[in-house]
Amino acid sequence: MEDIDRKMCVPKLVDSHCHLDDAAFDLDRPDVIRRARAAGVQKIIVPAYSPLFWPRLQQLCAQNIWLYPAYGVHPLYLHACASDWFEALPVWLENAVAVGEIGLDRSDNAPDHGAQIACLKSQLQLAQALDLPVILHARGTLEELILILRGFPRLRGVVHSFSGSLVQAQRLMDSGFYLGLGAAFTHARALRLQATIRSLPLDRVLIETDAPWQSGASFRGQRNEPAFLLETVRALAHLREMAFSALAEQLTRNTLAFFRLQENA
């Protein structure tokens, strides 16, 4: 009876951002997928970050029907692109659920910022033309990104690993964007982010792992993986003082609607 009850309590979750094609999973990817499924993760969105790895991402998703690819160029991988990457991108996007991971990054040794902006805008224009959502990266650039997005009023998207203020969150939501929450808020020092998350409307939130990176407090020092999404949702339910099952249902509903996926597909 305990085994039956445990299975009945497993939620239906969607990891809205996980780099399952990354080499960090090469030695045990089938086991990682099995653990994710056992934890209730029914679907995983796998965003690309470099054209060098688009083929491996396509192959992985073709082999696993619960994995859904997005294609794009991450700002930190801009220098690794061949000259014809943008001309090739529309073909890759024919079977994708989003354009991403794209965005801006001001970390040390990041590529030329002007080149990043040009790369981002070209992909935003393509996403708008194809009516695909975008998965956005913003490291030290959230204000700048918000201003750029004003030039694309018909665009849908999510700012992944959101860590901004409530004011910034509201400006993004007013423009029709969603906020992707990873496990960063589970760490004890993330008091400002926790305060922001307590006030967010849950119908504009997606949940993610960003695996193999950004492990939560329960898995500090470990490689992140999609099965850990379960603990992040539990932590969010605790933070929001609400029932876990109701929160899980809301987050899954948000993600399926955002990526235009069918629950049983």
Rank of each mutant, 00 (worst) to 15 (best):
G40E: 03
I102V: 00
L60W: 02
D26C: 13
L104K: 03
A48V: 09
A80P: 07
Q63Y: 14
A24Y: 14
Q42P: 00
R34M: 12
D84V: 08
L78M: 07
E87C: 11
L93R: 04
K43T: 08
F53L: 08
G114P: 03
W85C: 10
W85K: 07
V91Q: 02
A38Q: 14
A48F: 08
V41P: 03
D108S: 10
P111R: 07
Q123A: 06
E94C: 01
A118D: 07
P55M: 01
L120P: 11
V91K: 07
C61I: 12
N109Q: 14
L120R: 02
Q42K: 03
E101V: 05
V91I: 14
H74S: 06
V99H: 06
A24H: 15
P75H: 12
L104Q: 01
L104T: 05
I44C: 03
L67E: 04
A23K: 15
L60T: 08
L60V: 00
P111F: 10
A23S: 11
D108Y: 15
V32S: 00
A36H: 05
H74N: 04
Q123C: 12
A110K: 05
A24K: 14
A82S: 10
K43E: 03
R56N: 01
V97Q: 04
Y77H: 11
G103N: 04
P51L: 10
D112M: 12
Y77S: 08
L60K: 05
R37F: 00
I117M: 03
D112Q: 09
R35C: 08
Q59A: 13
I45Y: 07
A115K: 07
W66T: 15
R29I: 03
A24E: 13
A24C: 14
H79C: 12
V46G: 09
F53Y: 13
H79I: 07
Q42N: 13
D108C: 10
L76F: 06
P111S: 08
A82R: 11
Y49A: 08
W85E: 11
Y71H: 03
P75A: 10
L52C: 02
Y68E: 04
C61L: 00
C61R: 05
